[in-house]
Simulated scan of single mutants.
Amino acid sequence: MAERKVTVAAEVGLHARPAATFVQTAVKAPMDITVSKGVGGTPINGKSILQILGLDVRQGEDIVIRAEGEGADEVLDQLAAIAGTP
């Protein structure tokens, strides 16, 4: 399973427009994608806008994005770029 640890850069955190863009990109991927707040957090469905918003991730906080399958690294790179800085 591939993963990326990302520090959220947007002033609004992973909310509103950044969350929508993140989910739109994740939905296009053929594999399951999970997101957790911080290392060791409970993973949620990265394709669900409600679950992403429910994480309440703010600017400067870390998330861990995981995916498994062919093309996972490419998708994770795209999602990491949307969310913030690795």
Rank of each mutant, 00 (worst) to 15 (best):
K47V: 09
E3A: 07
T34S: 12
V39I: 12
L50T: 15
Q24V: 05
P30W: 05
P30K: 11
V75G: 09
A2L: 10
E70K: 07
A80S: 15
M31Y: 09
L14I: 03
R58C: 01
G46Y: 14
A83R: 01
D62I: 02
T42L: 03
P86N: 03
G38Y: 10
G38A: 14
R17V: 00
V57Y: 09
V57H: 02
D73M: 10
I49Y: 02
H15W: 05
G13C: 05
I33P: 00
L14S: 14
G38L: 13
A81G: 10
S36W: 00
Q24C: 08
A72I: 10
T42R: 08
G60Q: 03
A9P: 00
E74H: 13
A83P: 01
R4I: 12
I49P: 02
E70F: 07
I63A: 01
A20L: 11
I33N: 05
I65V: 06
Q51K: 15
E68W: 03
P18R: 02
P30Q: 11
A72L: 13
V6L: 02
D77T: 08
A9F: 11
T25G: 05
G60S: 02
T42N: 07
R66L: 04
L76I: 01
P18V: 05
V35S: 03
A26N: 14
D32P: 09
V75C: 13
D77M: 04
V27S: 15
A20S: 14
T85W: 04
Q78T: 13
E70S: 13
D32I: 01
A67D: 11
R66N: 10
G46E: 09
A29T: 08
Q59N: 11
A16V: 07
L53Q: 10
A10K: 08
I49W: 03
L76T: 00
T7V: 15
T25N: 15
I44G: 01
V27I: 11
I49T: 08
H15E: 12
K5R: 08
G41T: 15
E70N: 10
P18T: 13
K28F: 06
R66W: 05
